[in-house]
Design a protein around this nucleic acid. Structure first.
Lengths: 343, 343
DNA sequence: CTGAAAGCGCTTACAG
DNA sequence: CTGAAAGCGCTTACAG
């Protein structure tokens, strides 16, 4: 905890060593043009010699500036969020911002705590993938403080802030359209929870596709479960007990699809051959499964980059009305839908 | 950049509102016992009413304390590092420390820059997976400043600091022993670079296994390449051009193994059946490949947790000599080695 | 148990 | 172009 820097060099020391005032040294530090080349050099070499380390934290405190951004996501051990993080981190790095990380494991109380911690750390803004069903009041209160927040992936109805996500309705739509065109009539939708805005969107797309095809929807085909591999396994178990099994499965996301494929294989059902599978997100894993997973890409890395840019523009003072950046999803056709239903 | 908090409430405001001094309010904040219950309550309710946000940064500056830790790794889009990050983050969270992230992409100059940035942000310590071949002088200089650093996964010969890693020699040994016992005689070792301390260890284990079995080593079987999927693909291409192909492949890590399996499949060679494959690390992907990948687990999450604990003990003032925590690897036998060489 | 003063390391007007 | 002073929001001795 204690920073027991043995001989801690401050700007004061540098100034004295260079024979100038603290203010002058500070000016040199930030490359002011109002400094003579000769004093500039003197100060610079003094810094070198003394091994001076700039204290950005103290500087930020004084100048009321922040160079950190908070990122709150569900968990790290999930390729979707890893990819999101990569996009955010890479983009923010360009702006000289560093990210402070927090994971909620979808617990509302942890989210509350993290939000507080981030504020205490004087973040300039927050990127939040909110716990489903969490109240939007804390977010609005934070915005009130002048700290911008952008929601990513998961939307909160009442929150007055920016949002970056994929068009879930279209995503669900193109996935199910594709399956219907392949001749499937009984198509399950498994994984995720109906509180999730992304679940709702994907389900809506599913409904629309059925509607337009003039097909009836069987509520038994809709199975909620945690968005984990285990959740996929569990959902398949339930599905296999059904008297009238589906011929295709649209999974809430790729992680669910992985679990589903594992369980299917265990049950002697060949995914892709005996049962068509479509995922969502296109995480790196999707391409190495066998069969390679056909999935709807939500471009998580790009989502992250957009969120970072949007947040930074807010930090820089943009006062536009809250905007929503909706990425267009794309069906990535691979090998997990060879089977052609009852066509 | 600017933190234009509309009506920024400070401890001063709280104190005035509660009718006490700033010092008293500060004491309340940190739960001092020398405060009357009644004033405690007064102050607390004032904080509530005014919507006070504690400025931990200012507090840390004054009390010369740090609540952040720097983490520098090669890249985020790599399951090994994701897992490492999970372990570190989870453990550090328990100590109330937040992590500041940086990725080098194995560029020495980026690493230099990140190290500086972290110091400027007043991190209490640094966990570093160093760029191979980078000088240890900056690290020693940082330690000199009183900022502990722990190296993780990759060792630097001259660095006087803690290290957490897996026993690479043993890891290489058990992988190759296993293949030899399965009857293989021509075993390739592909991926990674010989500058990496982990590569050197695994290769040493490989050599030892051959030596003990009284088998000759063919230098053509050793192929270096970037530790990426593409690196695995490239290595296999080279391997297939060889007049005398191997019957088994020990991969520097699982990511290499994934690329290798992809390329093998493309070439009409069935991994696991026509060619045995062993990976290293046991990233989550290993279990979903088909065939499921037999691999040497390096327990990346546990590595992260150890590194975090070790660093924190240093931050707390531990002055033991630099220690090395070496985790014991474990062979995870799955399905990628069905073929039994020439036995 | 509480208050007045000094200080963490820096930057920001304001003089000169 | 450079210096002396005040202040960012907090904590830390030191009195009382």
């Amino acid at each position: 905890m204690k920073l027991e820097k043995k001989t801690h060099i401050t700007l004061q020391d540098v100034a004295k060593h260079a024979g100038v005032s603290r203010a002058t040294a500070s000016l040199v530090l930030r490359g002011s043009k109002h400094i003579t080349e000769s004093t500039r050099e003197k100060v610079l070499t003094s810094m070198q010699q003394l091994g001076y380390v700039y204290d950005r934290v103290a500087a930020n405190l004084r100048s009321k500036v922040s160079t950190t951004v908070g990122l709150i996501i569900m968990e790290l051990a999930n390729p979707f969020y890893s990819e999101l993080l990569v996009g955010i981190h890479q983009e923010l790095d360009k702006f000289g911002q560093t990210v402070i990380l927090g994971t909620t494991f979808d617990s509302e109380s942890i989210q509350e705590r993290l939000l507080s911690t981030m504020l205490e750390h004087r973040v300039g803004g927050i990127i939040l993938s909110a716990v489903p069903g969490s109240p939007s009041e804390p977010i609005n209160r934070i915005e009130q403080l002048g700290i911008p927040v952008v929601l990513v992936g998961r939307r909160l109805p009442e929150a007055k802030c920016d949002y970056v996500g994929v068009d879930n309705i279209m995503g669900g739509r193109i996935a199910v359209d594709y399956l219907i065109h392949k001749g499937h009539r009984r198509i399950a939708f498994i994984g995720g929870y109906s509180q999730l805005s992304s679940w709702q969107g994907r389900k809506q797309g599913y409904d629309k596709a059925f509607e337009q095809a003039g097909l009836p929807i069987d509520p038994a085909m809709i199975i909620e479960s945690p968005a984990t591999r285990q959740g996929g396994i569990d959902a398949i178990e339930k599905l296999l007990r059904l008297p009238n099994r589906p011929t295709a499965i649209f999974c809430y996301n790729d992680t669910i699809a992985i679990g589903a494929m594992m369980k299917l294989q265990d049950a002697g059902i060949c995914p892709g051959q005996d049962m068509a599978i479509v995922g969502f997100d296109d995480i790196p894993e999707a391409a190495i499964l066998s069969p390679k997973l056909t999935t709807v890409s939500s471009f998580p890395r790009m989502m992250g980059a957009h969120a970072a840019r949007l947040l930074y523009s807010r930090i820089e003072g943009s006062t536009l009305d809250p905007t929503a950046v909706i990425l267009e999803p794309q069906l990535i056709i691979r090998d997990s839908c060879k089977f052609s239903g009852s066509s």
